[in-house]
């Protein structure tokens, strides 16, 4: 596969580095200068071959983040480095070259397929845009359809409305894979599917990842799904990263109170251990006017004076095993009464 030749940085080089990504949307009809801080200084690495899960409540900026990574929305600030090459930089790679290597699968399987195009043409569109002839693109579409478990002769000529939700999402995955990307961003890709179909598609995604050395950025609000598929998890709250770490660490020893609350909000499988009270109450504060200091303090049971004064920093990651959280309780110097002690 040609992806081996363009694996420039070697295995240690993160596939994608996002540095301080920022996107503020102007508020229509709002006060002059009022902005929604949809993504407010997000930094993370995606290592080669891993699945990075991104979780958070609705409106925390997950989908905006996904679109920023592909430059579908222009970031206001921040930097993207793909396999050592800065995106949009003179000496780096262009946005188009990035889109050649990073693809996206959207949540709504119906609206992400052209209703007036047979699905094989939708799949062949990507290779065609990247310079293949129509015949070559058609052959690629057939191959990819087989890879996602759909018979090309049976499903290729169909229109999206003739397919079920799960089949459509397979087509969307096929469309993303058709140009042989190295990384796929899955934006709530299985959230709209039935549980049984969801499981099928998740297993398909796992198999495809192994077969094609893919790297996933898996965005979801469903913690069980994220736990199943991810190697590392990034927790977002109100446009910022609050916790980042390996999946076992996040789920067994969460460091941030928000992550703890998220995990506690999962419905229990055991009726005897039913959750009686929601662990976290109220809606997230408005991203137009986020709280001072720590953004989570308005809903945090451990909030203290220091939380309103200074913004906790996430800390630096070193490698795939780093487990970091943006919380004053993690910082011995912060002055928070519950801060971990240095021994």
């Amino acid at each position: 596969m040609d992806t081996v030749e363009i694996d420039r940085g070697g295995p240690a080089q993160p596939l994608l580095i996002a540095k301080d990504l920022r996107k503020h949307f102007k508020v229509k009809g709002g006060a002059p200068g009022a902005v929604v801080r949809a993504v407010d200084g997000v930094s993370f690495n995606v290592f080669k071959g891993e699945t990075l899960g991104v979780v958070g409540e609705s409106g925390c900026g997950k989908s905006t983040l996904a679109r920023l990574l592909l430059h579908l929305i222009e970031p206001d600030a921040g930097e993207l480095v793909f396999d050592g090459d800065a995106v949009g930089d003179m000496r780096g790679i262009t946005v188009n070259a990035l889109r050649r290597q990073v693809q996206m699968v959207f949540q709504d399987s119906s609206s992400s397929l052209n209703p007036r195009m047979p699905v094989r043409d939708s799949i062949a569109f990507g290779p065609y845009v990247h310079g293949k002839t129509k015949a070559e693109a058609g052959r690629i579409a057939r191959d990819v359809l087989v890879k996602v478990g759909l018979k090309p002769d049976l499903f290729g000529p169909r229109y999206p409305h003739e397919l079920s939700g799960g089949q459509k999402q397979r087509i969307n995955i096929a469309r993303a894979l058709a140009i042989e990307p190295r990384m796929v961003i899955l934006d709530e890709a299985v959230s709209a599917l039935d549980k049984s179909v969801e499981a099928q598609v998740l297993n398909l995604l796992r198999a495809l990842k192994e077969n094609f050395n893919l790297t996933y950025l898996f965005i979801s609000h469903d913690l069980s799904v994220v736990r199943y598929i991810s190697d590392r998890v990034l927790v977002m709250y109100l446009g910022a990263v609050v916790e980042l770490g390996p999946v076992q660490d996040i789920f067994s020893r969460p460091k941030h109170p928000y992550t703890t609350a998220l995990l506690a909000s999962r419905p229990s499988m055991d009726p005897a251990r039913r959750i009686e009270e929601p662990p976290i109450t109220g809606d997230p504060p408005s991203p137009i006017n986020p709280p001072s200091g720590c953004r989570f303090r308005t809903r945090c049971q451990h909030a203290e004076a220091v939380c309103a004064q200074t913004q906790p920093i996430l800390g630096a990651w070193n490698d795939r095993d780093s487990h970091i959280a943006a919380c004053h309780m993690q910082d011995p110097e912060s002055g928070h009464s519950l801060a971990i002690r240095t021994h």
Partner: peptide, 9 residues
Amino acid sequence: FVEAARATG
């Protein structure tokens, strides 16, 4: 699907 087309470059 228009955004997806843009994402393919």
